[in-house]
Simulated scan of single mutants.
Amino acid sequence: MDRIVVADDHPLFRAALRSAVDKAAPGAEVVECASLAEAKAAMVAGPVDLLLLDLKLSDSEGMAGLAAVRAEQPTVPVAVVSASEDAPVVRHALGLGAAGFIPKSSSLPQMVEAIAAILAGDSWAPDVPEADDDDPAGRVASLTPSQLRILEGLKAGRLNKQIAFDLGVSEATIKAHLTSVFRKLGVHNRTQAVILAKSLDPS
């Protein structure tokens, strides 16, 4: 029997996703979570066949939650659920390893189709135009999970020593990572990195 975790902080939308899961995978066990922490706990508690992850949760916003889950549970397929349908956001999520991207504007039949496809081992996402070589989402997607967490720290206005404490590493390690982060993003300083990262935040 499939075990599917639904992580969304809006009860009504969780109910909509549960309805889609019931149709796509009849009999599946559905674990509803309102935060990233609850979703992580559910994944530790037992095998998970699919995580439906909202990009905006009380304890996670943007791609940080997706990156954290992919780093900690690399074998669990993750379908991002988002109010945004912007092409850079879709490409960014898929670039970070999401198995699918389901816009919240999708009809129930579309959600059912998406969930069934991902459970079958396929990917599913709305059609978006190809990225050009200078696509910011592609540059951010090239970051490692650790580098992405550092970038999220920069966006939050945290100092190097604070980010180092958050990640349990030395401040020197953060400085070394920042050099790589700036190079991959094609920027020269923290301010430019933050501006680029915020341009990709789902609205």
Rank of each mutant, 00 (worst) to 15 (best):
M1L: 11
D2R: 15
R3Y: 02
V5A: 03
V6D: 09
A7W: 09
A7Q: 12
L12G: 13
A20Q: 13
V21L: 11
K23F: 02
G27I: 11
E29T: 08
V31C: 10
E32I: 03
A34T: 15
A34Y: 02
A34N: 05
L36I: 01
L36A: 00
K40Y: 09
K40A: 09
A41D: 11
A42D: 10
M43K: 02
V44Q: 14
P47M: 00
L50S: 08
L51V: 11
L52S: 14
L53P: 00
S58F: 00
S60L: 04
M63I: 04
V69T: 10
V69W: 14
E72L: 09
T75N: 10
V78C: 06
A79H: 08
A87M: 07
A87G: 08
A87K: 06
P88V: 00
V89W: 08
V90S: 07
H92W: 15
L94E: 11
L96V: 07
L96E: 09
A99V: 05
G100A: 14
G100W: 05
P103F: 06
P103I: 12
K104N: 08
L108D: 12
P109S: 02
A114F: 03
A116C: 07
I118L: 08
A120G: 14
D122V: 07
A125P: 10
P126S: 04
D127S: 12
E130H: 15
E130N: 13
A131R: 08
D135T: 03
P136Q: 00
P136C: 06
R139T: 01
A141V: 08
T144Q: 12
R149N: 08
R149I: 01
R149A: 07
G153N: 01
L154Q: 11
K155F: 05
A156S: 15
A156R: 07
G157F: 05
R158G: 01
L159V: 04
K161V: 10
Q162L: 09
I163Q: 05
V169S: 12
V169C: 13
E171T: 10
E171K: 01
A172E: 11
A172H: 10
A172F: 05
K175S: 12
H177T: 09
H177G: 14
H177D: 15
S180H: 13
V187E: 04
R190V: 03
Q192A: 14
I195E: 14
L196T: 06
